[in-house]
Amino acid sequence: MATEKEGGLVFHPLDQFIVKPLFGDGAVHWYTITNVTLWLALAVVAIVALFVIGTRGRAIVPSRTQSIGEVLYGFTYKMVEDVAGKDAVKFFPYIFTLFMFILFSNFLGLIPMSFATTSHIAVTGVLAAAVFLTVTILGFVKNGTKFLSLFWVSSAPLALRPVLAIIELISYFVRPVSHSIRLGGNIMAGHAVMKVFAGFAAIAAISPIAVVSITAIYGLEVLVAAVQAYVFTILTVVYLKDALHPAH
């Protein structure tokens, strides 16, 4: 960490994640309108603006916003179709909802002074748990007990299979944990690092370096925001494929 100045170098890298009520100073009840609510609502507004208002022309030759929407649609549709197969296409709206929500939340979180909703384990945990539950229930409904063959690696030697089954089982239940922490951790790490460098910028001697670093990290974070949304989505699709076609 940096050397101490007379004012005291104060880091509050995690203060940006504090959930506080938007109006007043009361306790945070489940129905309280907080900054989380505001930025979630802004994500909804952005999505509606792009996909409903942007495409209202239904033009054969698309406008700029409409072609952005179409590119996202085509990209996600192709991903679902390529990775999970034709019969996964009926889950496409579900996956597209996840993808768009995470993408827009990530980018909205990058606006200075904003609140990154996807940096919270509570948010990503719900997303990951929803995916996990959906995929597990779907696997059992579609395949019955044959879904358990996901854990029984039939291509391995018989003696190894119980061991592999335990490993597969553990890795299956670690999925939602890593799924949620990967997204939340990435976003939180990026924002915290930026805040730490912003703290360095208070020291005159290294402030130019700090500002340049913040710029560079910001660029990296833009990339991370898109890549993490993509990774979350494609892992969801891969899990969906496992549920639909459990045979290895």
Binding site: I181, R182, G185, A189, Y230, V231, I234
Partner: peptide, 13 residues
């Protein structure tokens, strides 16, 4: 991307 994500998740941990 999946491979990178798995490798990176552990760093994030």
């Amino acid at each position: 991307f999946i491979g990178i994500a798995f490798a990176e998740a552990l760093g994030i941990f």
